[in-house]
Nucleic acid binder design. Structure first.
Length: 557
RNA sequence: GGGCCUAUAGCUCAACGGCAGAGCAGCCGGCUCAUAACUGGUUGGUUACAGGUUCGAAUCCUGUUGGGCCUACCA
């Protein structure tokens, strides 16, 4: 086995089914990367789960008259269904309500406490007497002192955009009960704070060394925060849904959902190890020693809204813990806009993943999202563009390269991979390109340049089509059967390579190609290297790899 | 308000101090194995705007304009 690669993927919030922005931002890049690393011979663990805690879920539960856990279980089940359909290869996709998570988050808390990173402080928080609960800033509404907007939130006014504190609002009221008669109170409450100032220096030192291969927009955020100087952050919340604080007197408080969610990468690994019946194996992935400071390379696949938490806060927590491996890379993606507009559920221009899957299936969606993945800057999603790329690139370029070859072999060579005669310069050239594509695409994916990896593979598909046109076996078959056989043999080798090269991106289609090239078993088990499709191998009657789609009638999104 | 990122062909995106490129769309040609699918050639850019540094700038610097993210209690 090669290296240990831990693929950590952002935790979807269990309050809705996923939208395509989450897929393109973190889930799909994580899956492409993990699939490649497995084929490249590395030991891979890919973990994530549904984020179950936080105020919005309790509000949703109250509104529906059900428990928070019922809300979570409903959406978690839906999300699992999406992974099944999309073909995401989790080693453990869990949910933050699992017992291992509670136990290990509390252990992490206790360790931070014992090591002196947490301190208690009394603060004043807004409180709704009607609901008998403390309110987070965004659950307080009132009139904006700057612009007079009547429904400004306690954290920010949506009209003028100014940042606010709840006590600045004029006539504040509770967003949950909407009661304007019972006044918001400000009550004293005690919380744990996490003293980030204690890790400022080591964090700077680590970041300096680690960020050499990071994306520039991630580096920018990290440098900005470090330059600004880290400050203590509240670590607990007045809420009854979340991981309990393991300290007497804190029974009505919970660990802030942000922290328990990010610790999920660790706890999901521990849970995975337990499920394997080898409960200590997680240590091989996470625990550093003097001899082995990097037990695994950890990659965090997230959207750009999450950079601070994964590139500053989580590494700082890991340092506070003291013996856990720090992130190797945080390849955050930018955002994918919808039809030129910022994606927003309230604006109604969010594309829900199940809808996209219903229309076009997993591989057209995976291919399109990989092709426009916002690795360096925001990109733009539209169904029209998805259909165009499906028809022009998957069907016409890649699918057709396979189909025209295999139907021809079926007709003229009895459904067996032809015998190769002497190879010409052109034959050798295509085979050389084929071999080189493994290196080029592999290097790109390993550097988390996933779009480049895809375009390398598609360039090979175009080279196959050009080679076929140049060699014209349909003419050659009439005059020189051996030459025709040889060129078809060469093309079959290139197709055999494409079934591997494209598996991280479009695994369902490449599994089909795997089968119609006469292989059994799963294409996932192929190694990332050139391997011959042997002459004489029996080829089943080929079926098209992809279907064409009609352009959507409504141009919207 | 502050910080960070970003603007390149009709469209989607590369190039990151050394001749501005690819795919698609458009135009002209070739092929007929293939889901009318393939392929060659070609048109198309004052690199948002204004300055500056440099032998040389899409690239580095300053400013302006537009977009995005973060801003410590959103998850």
């Amino acid at each position: 086995m090669g290296e240990r690669i831990l693929v950590c993927v952002a935790w979807p919030y269990a309050k809705s089914v996923t939208h395509v922005g989450q897929i393109v931002g973190s889930i799909l890049p994580g899956d492409i990367f993990a699939r490649y690393q497995r084929m490249a011979g590395n030991e891979v663990l890919m973990v994530s789960g549904s984020d179950a805690h936080g105020t919005p879920i309790t509000v949703e539960a109250d509104a529906e008259g059900i428990s928070p856990n019922e809300v979570v279980e409903r959406y978690h089940a839906q999300i699992l269904g999406v992974w099944e359909r999309l073909g995401v290869t989790w080693d453990n996709y869990t949910v933050t309500t699992n017992p291992t998570h509670y136990r290990e988050v509390q252990a992490f808390f206790t360790r931070l406490l014992e090591r002196g990173y947490l301190f208690k402080e009394t603060m004043t928080s807004p409180y709704c007497p009607t609901d008998d609960r403390f309110l987070q800033d965004r659950y307080i509404l009132g009139t904006c002192p700057h612009c007079g907007f009547a429904r400004a939130r306690g954290d920010q006014c949506e009209q003028c955009g100014k940042l606010l504190d709840p006590d600045q609002l004029i006539d504040p009221y509770c967003r949950i009960c909407l009661s304007k008669t019972s006044k918001i109170e400000f009550r004293a409450t005690e919380h744990y704070f996490w003293d980030l100032t204690k890790v400022q220096a080591p964090l700077e030192e680590w970041a300096q060394a680690a960020m050499g291969h990071w994306r520039s927009h991630v580096v920018g955020v990290v440098q900005g925060w470090l330059k600004e100087g880290l400050r203590p952050r509240a670590f607990t919340r007045d809420i009854d849904w979340g991981v309990p604080v393991p300290v007497a007197g804190f029974e009505n408080k919970r660990i802030y959902v942000w922290y328990d969610a990010v610790m999920g990468y660790l706890t999901a690994t521990i849970e995975w190890a337990e499920q394997q019946g080898t409960p200590d194996v997680w240590r091989d992935w996470w625990v550093t020693t003097a001899e082995n400071p990097q037990p695994s390379k950890t990659y965090y696949f997230i959207g750009k809204d999450n950079i601070t938490f994964h590139a500053i806060i989580w590494p700082a927590l890991l340092m506070g813990h003291g013996e856990l491996v720090l992130p190797y890379d945080v390849p955050a993606n930018e955002f994918m806009q919808m039809g030129g507009m910022k994606a927003s559920a309230s604006e109604g221009n969010v594309v829900w993943t199940p809808d996209a899957l219903d229309r076009y299936g997993p591989d057209a969606l995976r291919y399109y999202l990989a092709a426009i993945m916002p690795e360096q800057r925001d990109t733009n999603f539209s169904y029209e563009d998805l259909v165009r790329r499906n028809n022009d690139e998957l069907v016409a370029t890649f699918g057709n390269a396979a189909h025209r070859t295999l139907t021809f072999v079926q007709k003229h060579f009895g459904g067996q991979v032809p015998e190769a005669g002497a190879l010409t310069v052109e034959d050798e050239a295509l085979l050389a390109t084929t071999r080189a594509t493994f290196d080029a695409a592999g290097a790109a994916i390993n550097a988390v340049h996933l779009r480049d990896g895809l375009s390398e593979a598609m360039a090979l598909a175009r080279a196959v089509n050009k080679y076929l046109d140049d060699q014209a076996p349909w003419k050659m078959i009439k005059t020189d059967r051996e030459r025709a056989a040889t060129s078809l043999y060469v093309v079959v080798q290139a197709l055999g390579a494409l079934r591997i090269l494209l598996t991280p991106y479009i695994p369902h289609a490449t599994q089909k190609l795997h089968t119609i090239l006469g292989f059994s078993g799963s294409v996932d088990n192929c190694a990332w290297q050139y391997a011959t499709v042997p002459s004489g191998q029996a080829l089943p009657v080929p079926v098209p790899l992809f279907a064409k789609f009609d352009l959507p009638e409504v141009a919207a999104v």
